[in-house]
Design a protein around this nucleic acid. Sequence first.
DNA 1: ATGACTCAATCGTTGAGA
Length: 255
Amino acid sequence: MKIASWNVNSFKMRAAHVKQFLEIHQVDILGLQELKAESIDTNAFSELGYHINFVGQKAYNGVALITRTPIEILSIKLNGDDHDTQARFIEAAINKTRIINIYLPNGNPLGTEKFDYKLNWMTRLIAHARKLREQRIPFVIMGDFNIIPDEGDCHNPKAWENDALFHISARQKFRELINLGLYDCFRTLHPTDRDAFTFWDYQAGAWPRNHGIRIDHILASPLMIDRLQECFIDRNPRGWDQPSDHTPIIAHFDT
DNA sequence: ATGACTCAATCGTTGAGA
C-alpha cells in the first residue's frame, strides 16, 4: 500500500499537478491539504481510476482523500470541540487500517488565540490517537502538521525560534503524540538526513537556496511501522510550473 | 524591512499562509 500526503495550496490551481503526480507514482491513497474551496470536482481523476472524498471550506483549509478503491469515511471532524467548523480532518477505514489526513493549524502569530487553537487542536488529536492505540487499531496519520520536529528539520533553526511551527510548546505537543508509540516514517528510515524538506517559502529564493522546512509528515502506529518499506520526499513537484509551496511525502507499506 | 510571493474573494485590497 502506497500512501502520499501533499499540501497543494488550492485544489483548483493544482489539479493538473495532482493528476501528474498520480500518473507518476500510482499511489493507493493520496491525502491532500489546503483545498481552499468549499467544493471540488470529485470526478477530477476518475479517468485515472481514482475516487475523491473531501471536506471543504470556503477560501481556507479543506482536506481530501484520493483513493484507488472506494473507502468508508468514518469522520470529517476531530473530536473534542463541537464549535470547531474548520475543515482540517478526515478519517477513513481501509481494510482494517485507519487512515487519517490532517491539516494542523499553523498557529501564527505566537501569543494569540490562533496559537491557543493550534495547541488545543493538538491536544484533541493526541486524545484521538490515544483511543486508537488503546483499541489496538493500526493507523496512519498523515498531513501538513505545521510542526518542525527538530533543529535538523529546518535550514536555520534560529530564524524559526519564535514561530508557531518551531515553538517549544508546539514541539512538546508533537512529542507527546509521538510518545503514544507512533513513528515518524521519514525519520525512522532516514535518521541522519539533513536538508530533507517538504516546504519552501515562495519568497526570497527559498527554493533555489534550499531554505526549507520539514513540516509534512506520515506517522505510523507500531503495527504499521513494522510494515514500512520506504518513505521519501518527492522534491520534483516543487520545481514544476506554478507549484505549491509544499511537495509530497510518500510511504510504502507491505501488503 | 513585520518586507519578499501566492491564493481566495472580489475587481483594489485585505487576510492568510509558514
